[in-house]
Amino acid sequence: MIEAVNVTKRFAAPGGLITAVHAVSLSVRAGEIVALLGPTGCGKTTLLELLAGLQSPTEGSVTIDGVLALPPEPADPEALRAHRRRHGLLPPVANGLFRDRPRHDVAVVFQDHAVFPWMTTLRNVTFALGVRGVPRAQRREVAVGALERVGLGAALHQYPAQLSGGMRQRLALARALAVRPKAVLMDEPFASVDQATRERLQDLVLELWRDTGVTVVLVTHDVAEAVYLADRIVLFGAIPGEVSRVAAVPLARPRARASPELAALQAAFATAPDER
């Protein structure tokens, strides 16, 4: 469903150009759960944003559901400006100017949930639905449904400042899934909550995945999480920005967290030379 072909991303930095992602090719199939696993700073967040169409690659291409996400752009600032001027692109993502124009049917859950603090829980979701073009009459119903699904039915009119960290993350999840995307990409979504909440949220994701058949791409540095959730794991290894290998997780669901098979797989992935 999401195809990355030889994608490279370079950034301009005071010292020169930094390579965040180098020659990564990846194919995510519809309906599967893929985990991008690696230590902090290995480029997995950048890769996720490339896969979501939030950033343009320097080389290579990303196609979402057959449609090119963003054309490649040069990394050097001078060349970048010239390139954008030539193509009339408003930085950094060329959505519409006046009309909302969803380009791809994906949703993203960010690491710091990024829910809008000036909107209530309900409004956060209805806003996303509105941008996606859902008719006004249906928005509230769909939003309430999505929020109840994640257990936030009682907090509809509260502001994110009044919610706990876990609740905010659930709000981000509800907002992402309310628009019924074909794929949802999550960037370490459960890193900032405690273990018990994390496990509950992971089960919630599995539940939603099972009910809707949505494709999930998940970035994480937690091996246990990757092994518990994913069908395939993309390992980032010793060299930053490069995929060391892609491995399948051949366990049937439902998986038990404490099972020996899981533990063995965890150990196998953990011994990969990626701990820094």
Binding site: L54, N95, L97, D100, R101, R103, F110, R132
Partner: peptide, 16 residues
């Protein structure tokens, strides 16, 4: 920029 990215990913126009 997080908020901008969050809105953009849903397809929000610049005006939105």
């Amino acid at each position: 920029p997080r908020y901008l990215a969050a809105a953009r990913v849903f397809g929000a126009s610049e005006l939105s």
